[in-house]
Design a protein around this nucleic acid. Structure first.
Length: 319
DNA sequence: GCGTCCAGGTCTACC
DNA sequence: GGTAGACCTGGACGC
């Protein structure tokens, strides 16, 4: 448990439309930064590491979707210099999609038979970035070859046993472990502790590479062209095409067996007996239809499956 | 109750 | 440059 006794506050003016509730607590149940975060009305308490520094974060929403304002307070252990505070604010701006303009995507989506429903249902939902590269890697690797339920269990276990608890503003929030913590674990023991199977090896290898400290941060990958960022991510152990699409700050079109079934149905209006065999086909079709907006399309569809099933009169399997 | 199958993939070994 | 086969585990399914 780490008590975070220092703090500073700041204000973020988001690019409208910005629906805070939908953005920080996605309808499909995806977390903002960690599953341990706390929500009350228009306030969220969460925790993350920025360059191995544990930060507790309280975000309060003021205003409306069309005139959005976020008051943030960052809690930390030792005092931060003005440069560190400024850099943190910039990083958070990126992670919360504060400056992202939804206009071009909404224009495309409005003319699309599938997407036009989603942008009404989820008006103002912004894409957010993962809390960190390693955090995103844990997510991607735990999702591999496992039913979602088991993936969730593995992640909860990692967070519980190896995460760091931030205490601030009367709350306790667990942040993902830093690479250094996982890098020194024995693969067999780690695997057994959280029933990770073959994933334990990937996680420890990934942790070692990232702990070495010369791999670019998510913020740095965000400045690269999307295809370069993806190529770089695939160099990492345990990270292939699918996981790179999950991790990349540019987004991708991360088609796996589940999403192949869902998007296969949306695109071709039929069921496929073996979804694994149509992964490539579905991926191509999505990118053909939606191009550079394919991630936003994926994101909006995945968070609106329940409504979309009704709008389109077809059964779509929920996550 | 008990075997079999396979999941929100990646890597290696072999052509 | 392309593709079987192995890899952990446990819940779902068929018998």
């Amino acid at each position: 448990l780490v008590k975070l006794t220092n703090s500073f506050s700041f204000t973020l003016q988001a690019k409208p439309p910005y629906n805070f509730a939908l953005t920080v607590q996605k309808p499909a149940g995806w977390n903002l930064f960690t599953s341990s975060e706390v929500f009350e009305d228009s306030v969220v308490w969460t925790a993350l590491h920025i360059r191995d520094l544990l930060i507790g974060l309280k975000l309060r929403f003021k205003g409306t979707t069309n005139s959005p304002k976020i008051i943030g307070t960052a809690y930390h252990k030792s005092s931060l210099g003005p440069d560190q505070k400024d850099s943190f604010k910039q990083t958070l701006t990126l992670k919360l999609g504060i400056n992202d303009d939804l206009g071009e995507f909404y224009a495309l989506a409005g003319k699309d038979k599938i997407l036009r429903h989603t942008i009404i249902d989820l008006y103002g939902m912004h894409d957010t970035q993962n809390s960190g590269l390693f955090d995103a890697g844990i997510l991607a690797i735990c999702l591999q070859m496992a039913p979602l339920k088991r993936s969730t269990k593995m992640m909860e276990c990692i967070l519980e046993k190896y995460g760091e608890v931030a205490e601030f503003d009367g709350k306790e929030v667990k942040a993902w472990p830093v690479p250094k913590t996982i890098a020194r674990l024995q693969i067999a023991k780690f695997s057994k502790a959280c029933n990770l199977g073959f994933r334990a090896k990937y996680l420890v290898q990934l942790a070692k590479v990232l702990a070495a400290g010369n791999f670019p941060l998510l913020e740095e990958l965000a400045r690269l062209p999307p295809e370069d960022a993806k190529e770089k991510l695939i160099e990492l152990p345990g990270i292939g095409d699918y996981s790179a699409d999950i991790i990349s700050p540019h987004g991708g079109f991360p088609i796996d067996v589940w999403s192949a079934e869902v998007f296969g149905k949306l695109f071709f209006r039929r069921d496929f007996k073996n979804a694994r065999e149509v992964v490539e086909k579905v991926k191509e079709e999505g990118i053909r239809r939606w191009g550079k907006w394919s991630w936003m399309a994926f994101f909006y569809v995945a968070n609106d499956l329940k409504n979309l099933s009704k709008h389109l009169g077809m059964k779509l399997r929920l996550a």
